[in-house]
């Protein structure tokens, strides 16, 4: 069988976020923190010295996010069910505001993400947190690769037999 090239229009992702590099790097950090193991996030926050001075301006709280899919995978949206999400917003004494969102009901983790988001905006901690984020990304990539290798070993090629009718 010849393989037609995928139709790019059919698989095009949703419009990319604003190209502002500051936003892109903040978005990437929040993604890293949401996909990291809870221990990694808490350890990163615990290593911040001195411990940050902050106030919590919203939460931490647990709520629901309606999970949307698309009909047929790429069509009109529909509501597939909900997921629990913990969130928190903090403000450092120096003024930076941080947001934490993470699936599940772990308010401590959401608050830690919010604090790291805020601290990453300070010159004092930006590089420490960026380095921790690189380590968390590497650990996640390794976990995903290990799993992908196990899955890849189950790749199957079925052979179609000729029917023995003659």
């Amino acid at each position: 069988m010849t393989r037609p090239a995928p139709d790019p229009a059919a698989t095009a992702p949703d419009p990319a976020p604003a190209p502002d590099p500051a936003i892109a790097s903040r978005q990437a950090l929040l993604r890293t923190l949401a996909l990291a193991e809870a221990d990694e996030v808490l350890a990163t926050l615990g290593a911040i010295d001195p411990a940050p001075d902050y106030t919590v301006v919203r939460g931490p709280e647990v709520g629901l996010v309606m999970v949307r899919g698309r009909i047929g995978g790429g069509g009109a949206p529909f509501n597939a069910g909900e997921a629990t999400v913990a969130r928190c917003t903090v403000k450092l004494a120096s003024g930076e505001v941080g947001f934490g969102h993470v699936m599940g009901r772990d308010e401590t983790r959401a608050k830690a993400i919010a604090l790291l988001d805020a601290l990453a905006q300070t010159a004092a901690h930006a590089e420490t947190i960026a380095a921790a984020a690189r380590a968390m990304d590497a650990a996640r990539t390794a976990r995903e690769a290990a799993r992908a290798a196990e899955v890849a070993a189950t790749r199957v090629d079925f052979f179609t037999m000729v029917r023995g009718e003659d």
């Binding site: 069988m1 949703d14 709280e61 709520g63 629901l64 996010v65 899919g69 597939a80 992908a148």
Partner: peptide, 30 residues
């Protein structure tokens, strides 16, 4: 779930970008 507030609705999930654990087709071999 009735005890929790609704925080919002997600962006539609992209199943084409799924980290595949299993994927089969009974109609297209390759």
């Amino acid at each position: 779930r009735t005890t929790l507030p609704r925080l919002g609705a997600s962006r539609p999930v992209d199943t084409a970008a799924m980290a595949i654990e299993r994927r089969i087709s009974a109609t297209f071999k390759d």
